[in-house]
Design a protein around this nucleic acid. Structure first.
Length: 671
DNA sequence: TTAGGGTTAG
């Protein structure tokens, strides 16, 4: 009697309060305790469930089942498996409604051995035909062996929507995109319609393919079926559009989501950062915190590249502190992004320390570290790391070769680079891209092997990749080696592809000036003006007491301008006494020598360095960042300055770091 | 019993 009352009640119980009331009623009617237990466990009330369970001297099958399912649903997978073992020892036989939970626990704990033996038990008791059990098994195999997923799926006598979704997710998760999409089609043939689970497996595929038109088809389907306000679909859509470079669309979806969790915030933040909207990414991150959404580990690896690209150390350091407090510092993704940030912000030693603490660095960690060395001109460290990486059975990929070739190109290791280039193609079958060609071509050119460089660039198989920037490196080399003839040939190639290439105009006009062909130089400058082409303005900045001070070339707007100018005057006098001779080669303007000297002194990096010197105590390291390459004269001058004021001056230009100390620079004057 | 977001790029 009591039992039937309870059974009719139990599925309607929705709150703890109701459950308690029912419990009281059950005690009065002397209902079986295992039923009370199932009411509590279905609500995920572990404390209440355990109180009852532990009072049982010999728990029934129903009692075991309840407690196991309660553990699994709360994510307490170890306890769930432990209870299962105890249940078996007590001779209670497992049945259909306990296996799915157990298999799920196994899956989360990645205990594949136990999972397989469970599969054996399931077959022995003939439960492999059960849909729920089969689905749980497929889900487990989806994380280890797709072959087994197919096998279970093919042998299932009955399949439901979850079965299809599980196979599709398995295929998608294992990079078998074609198969996944094929199954979505087949599923329609079996009379089942894709639901929100299906879509959230499919959307990341189109994100990966950068196929926005098919992504939009899915978006349309989601709208028609009311899935577009689904939290999961929302983040997949945000991600898909962002990966297809349509961040505005991502933002629209984000702004209109009825609710947002940490993952939707993260998708949006990552979307901004991946598309170069670093400030916006950081703004959103702050807003996320203001909204009391706790960042997850993924959030940190998404936001860190923003600090790296903006070279804002103090922010990156704050985040590092946060990461340590959260205990996320052993996460590979976070470590890689952290070491990259430190390297890009000039702290190569900290980057190295983080790298060395990593248990098993993956290809990205190695590459970030190699790139960091390249950035700081530590070419031999980079080459050594590249070897070590291979010894550790990490196979170099496209990006790794970009990094190691960059290291060579920053140190003038031309033959090393050619060997690496050949090995990339011959040993690893990687087809070289623009970046690889650019690095080698740059090296050949600067080594004076101009014709070889010309042939090398001309050998690029894909014409569309022979861009202005690849040719420009050679053009710059032609200027240095004063080969006006080849330069003209190169420039012709550039203007054919990219008639607006401002850098090429400037370089070519420099080539003509250097060769004394003033008329030609003037002709080009007029052409530039006519086309409205202007040089990218130079800008340098320095962080003093967490405040960024920016200087443009010839900038007189800084409140301390007169002190800066005075300091530069004093420095110039001392530099000249030490033997400094201004190098006016880079000064394009047709002006008097005296004015050229003045122009050099007003270069943005020099203003920033002088401001750093007068704003910090003696001995403090000066760190300046510049948006273009350091000019030849400023490089010479900074070496003198470092010696005169006895300070280390670190300048990060657009491609690398220069560490100036005692009158020398870490780049060995090769940059 | 099924789902979404992450690190490296002259």
């Amino acid at each position: 009697m009591a039992k039937s009352i309870l059974q009719s009640h139990s599925y309607r119980v929705k709150s703890k309060q109701e459950a308690k009331q029912l419990h009281a009623q059950m005690i009065r009617t002397r209902a079986p305790t295992s039923l009370v237990l199932s009411v509590y466990s279905n609500l995920g009330l572990l404390r209440e469930s355990l109180l009852i369970f532990n009072s049982l001297t010999s728990p029934s099958y129903v009692a075991w089942k309840s407690i196991i399912r309660c553990y699994t649903s709360l994510g307490l997978f170890h306890q769930s498996l432990l209870s299962f073992a105890r249940m078996r020892a007590s001779a209670a036989r497992p049945d259909r409604d306990v296996f799915p939970s157990i298999v799920k626990s196994c899956t989360h704990l990645m205990d594949w051995k136990l999972g397989q033996s469970l599969h054996g038990s399931i077959i022995r008791v003939g439960l492999e035909i059960d849909v729920y059990t089969g689905n749980a098994l497929m889900n487990m195999y989806g994380k280890v062996c797709m072959g087994s997923v197919r096998k279970v799926f093919d042998e299932m006598p009955e399949r439901d929507l979850v079965s299809w979704n599980t196979v599709i997710a398995g295929n998608a998760g294992n990079g078998m995109y074609r198969e996944a999409l094929e199954m979505v089609r087949e599923m329609g043939g079996a009379g089942l319609k894709p639901d929100s689970f299906t879509l959230s497996s499919v959307l990341p595929i189109f994100a990966e393919y950068v196929d926005v038109s098919r992504g939009m088809e899915i978006h349309g389907y989601a709208i028609r079926h009311g899935f577009d306000s689904d939290l999961f679909i929302g983040s997949s859509l945000i991600d898909m559009y962002a990966k297809c470079t349509m961040v505005e669309k991502s933002r629209q979806i984000f702004d209109f989501l009825p609710q947002r969790d940490a993952i939707s915030w993260n998708s949006m933040i990552a979307g901004c950062v991946q598309n170069g909207l670093f400030d916006e990414g950081l703004r959103l991150f702050r807003r996320m915190l203001e909204n009391s959404i706790k960042p997850r580990h993924v959030t940190f690896s998404s936001i860190m590249p923003a600090c790296a690209h903006l070279t804002t150390m103090h922010l990156g350091k704050q985040l590092h502190g946060y990461i340590l407090r959260c205990g996320f510092d052993d996460n590979e993704f976070i470590s890689s992004s952290l070491l990259d940030m430190y390297a890009k912000c000039g702290r190569i030693h900290i980057a190295r320390r983080i790298f060395e603490k990593m248990e098993s660095p993956d290809i990205v960690s190695w590459t970030a570290m190699i790139m960091g060395c390249a950035l700081h001109g530590h070419a031999h460290d980079a080459l050594f790391l590249f070897q070590q990486m291979k010894v550790n059975n990490v196979r170099p990929n496209y990006v790794a070769f970009v990094a190691v070739l960059t290291a060579c190109s920053h140190a003038g290791l031309v033959d090393q680079a050619r060997k690496l280039f050949d090995s990339m193609v011959g040993d690893y079958g990687i087809s070289p891209g623009l970046e690889h060609y650019a690095a080698v071509a740059d090296l050949l050119g600067r080594a004076g092997r101009l014709e070889e460089a010309y042939e090398f660039i001309s050998s690029m198989p894909r014409e569309q990749e022979r861009t202005g920037s690849v040719w420009s490196t050679l053009l710059a080399a032609c200027r240095v080696h004063k080969n006006a003839e080849l330069a003209e040939k190169v420039a012709e190639n550039i203007f054919k592809i990219d008639p607006e290439n401002m850098g090429a105009y400037v370089l070519m006009s420099n080539v003509y000036s250097a060769a004394g062909r003033w008329k030609d130089a003037a002709r080009l400058r007029i052409a530039m003006k006519g086309r409205g082409i202007r040089k990218k303005p130079a800008c340098s900045w320095i962080e003093i007491k967490n405040k960024v001070h920016a200087f443009m070339a010839g900038d007189e707007s800084h409140p301390k301008y007169y002190e800066i100018k005075e300091a530069l005057g004093v420095l110039l006098e001392r530099m000249e006494r030490e033997g400094y001779v201004p190098n006016t080669d880079d000064v394009l303007h047709d002006v008097e020598e005296e004015q050229k000297r003045h122009l050099l002194c007003s270069h943005s990096e020099r203003l920033a360095i002088a401001f750093g010197i007068i704003s910090t105590p003696p001995g403090t390291t000066i760190r300046v960042t510049k948006n273009l390459r350091v000019c030849v004269d400023c490089h010479i001058a900074t070496k003198f300055i470092s010696k005169i004021v006895g300070r280390e001056i670190i300048v990060r230009d657009v491609s690398r770091f220069h560490h100036f100390k005692d009158g020398k620079c870490s780049c060995g004057d090769y940059w």
